[in-house]
Design a protein around this nucleic acid. Structure first.
Lengths: 197, 197
DNA sequence: CAAAGCATGTAATCGGTTACATGATTGT
DNA sequence: ACAATCATGTAACCGATTACATGCTTTG
């Protein structure tokens, strides 16, 4: 499923400009799906070319002109096809977790910074979800998506809160054992090959 | 942070072949970071070319030959640089959630299938985590990554379990209201533009 | 007065996925 | 007998991010 399909889906909820589409799914699934203008605008052009949406130019005063898109019956067909046949993938690409996995190589201040930054990001996402839920009129799907996001994010935030200090002290111990003298750790020779995997 | 950096990180834990690197981080962060052979092998070639790892050809009988990679001091420097300067991003791209957001357009059987499939995927990921924790020797970073994954996944699984039947019945109601006759919903004209966003 | 919001688009680049190609061995 | 594991690689393609380009209005 690509961005074209998601644009079609959002247009199901009413006619919109590219700008509005982006805002909409920023509020609705920011934390589950990202897309920038660089993908949305070309997607809308293609959809127009394929007759899956229509485009109306609207002039405004005191605002830039805008292009309002509307889904066509052919577009609805295509959307249904995608909705019925897309496998429900869920991919995560977390550089944060990778960094965490190599925590033993990091100075403790850096590790603390990483954990705190991630916690702040999660808190912000949670606020976004609450905010959206208040202002959009409720529907079962919206509630479900919001609830799922909240559950996943809150679990991570709580976990980080619970283990932050523990991890920091464990990592500190570990590094003190591996580098008892004043030599920085990265100056050591590469370890012998180990099967201890 | 790209795959090259992560390969360097894994090589910090001991010398490995490309195949072993992939296995390693499949077990360690499968659910947080994916990478196929198509990215790993070229990455290792580049690292070798840049002198960040060395490569030793090892012939084996009854097995294909292999190439064992070892991180060099220059590689460690590069890794530390990346570790210290990479912002802790965390991106999710969930087609599952998008599908869920458009649940009202889906036949209930399809929706049920999606939820159940996602639940099964999560259960499998949880098993992977438990399995890895048992066989790898414990370290604070590993425990942290495993715990974080477990927390996030378990929260989602529980949420799906709690709300599955509720969502299905709500969506059923919703669709019965919108389509009281026998006409399929997608034959309706596109709605009037609405600000009810 | 500066920043954020409204509004659209293009071009270059980068990186990842997929498919293809090969082939012996071990476990079910 | 068939699937899975071990083991490496290339090439084409696709899609996404980023930077660039523009410019007025509203809010703080």
């Amino acid at each position: 499923m690509d961005i074209r399909c998601i644009c079609l889906g959002v247009l199901t909820l009413g006619d919109k400009t590219g700008y509005e589409i982006k805002k909409h799914f920023e509020r609705a699934f920011k934390h589950f799906f990202v897309a920038g203008f660089g993908s949305i605008y070309p997607a809308l052009s293609e959809l127009t070319g394929d007759g899956l949406v229509t485009c109306t130019d609207v002039a405004q005063d005191k605002r830039p002109h805008k292009k309002v898109y509307r889904i066509t019956p052919k577009g609805r067909e295509r959307l249904m096809d995608a909705l019925l046949n897309t496998p429900p993938r869920h991919k995560v690409r977390s550089e944060f977790v990778v960094l965490l996995y190599f925590a033993h190589l990091l100075p403790p201040e850096r590790l603390a910074e990483l954990l705190d930054e991630r916690a702040r990001d999660i808190e912000e996402s949670l606020r976004t979800i609450d905010h959206f839920e208040q202002q959009a009129h409720p529907s079962p799907s919206r509630e479900m998506v919001a609830g799922l996001g909240r559950a996943a994010l809150k679990a991570q935030l709580d976990f980080i809160g619970e283990r932050r200090d523990w991890l920091l002290s464990e990592i500190g111990d570990y590094q003190r054992i591996r580098t008892p003298s004043r030599l920085p750790a990265q100056d050591k020779q590469p370890e012998a090959p180990s099967r201890a995997d």
